[in-house]
């Protein structure tokens, strides 16, 4: 299935990726090729087949809801580029 430039812009928005106008043609071309590749699956009869979410037959492990990690805010925030008073800084969200 061929994608159109409008599709690529919509997908890029969903993925929160900025795509400039001069990149669109290349994405249309290559993503269309990838979608063509995966479209082969449409020919397969999968009636009654249980979807496989995980390679091993195992269920999600649960644990008691107890504090197991200490707060290491300063250590973790060392990798952030903008921090003030222990809070992450982002552009203004609410007027």
């Amino acid at each position: 299935m061929a994608l159109y430039p409008t599709d690529v812009r919509q997908i890029a928005h969903l993925a929160r990726l900025e795509v400039s106008d001069d990149e669109i043609a290349d994405y249309v071309d290559k993503l269309s090729q990838i979608i063509d590749l995966v479209d082969q699956l449409q020919q397969v009869d999968t009636g009654g087949v249980v979807p496989m979410a995980h390679p091993l037959d195992m269920s999600q492990r649960l644990r008691a809801d107890e504090v197991s990690e200490e707060n290491q805010r300063e250590l973790f925030q060392r990798n952030a580029s903008a921090v003030t008073d222990g809070l992450y800084r982002v552009p203004k969200v609410i007027d």
């Binding site: 995966v38 699956l41 449409q42 397969v44 999968t46 087949v49 249980v50 979807p51 496989m52 979410a53 390679p55």
Partner: peptide, 15 residues
């Protein structure tokens, strides 16, 4: 359904 669910089903067949 057309892609991800289908792929999980074919994954089952391969497995």
């Amino acid at each position: 359904d057309a892609y991800y669910l289908k792929a999980q089903q074919v994954r089952q067949l391969i497995s």
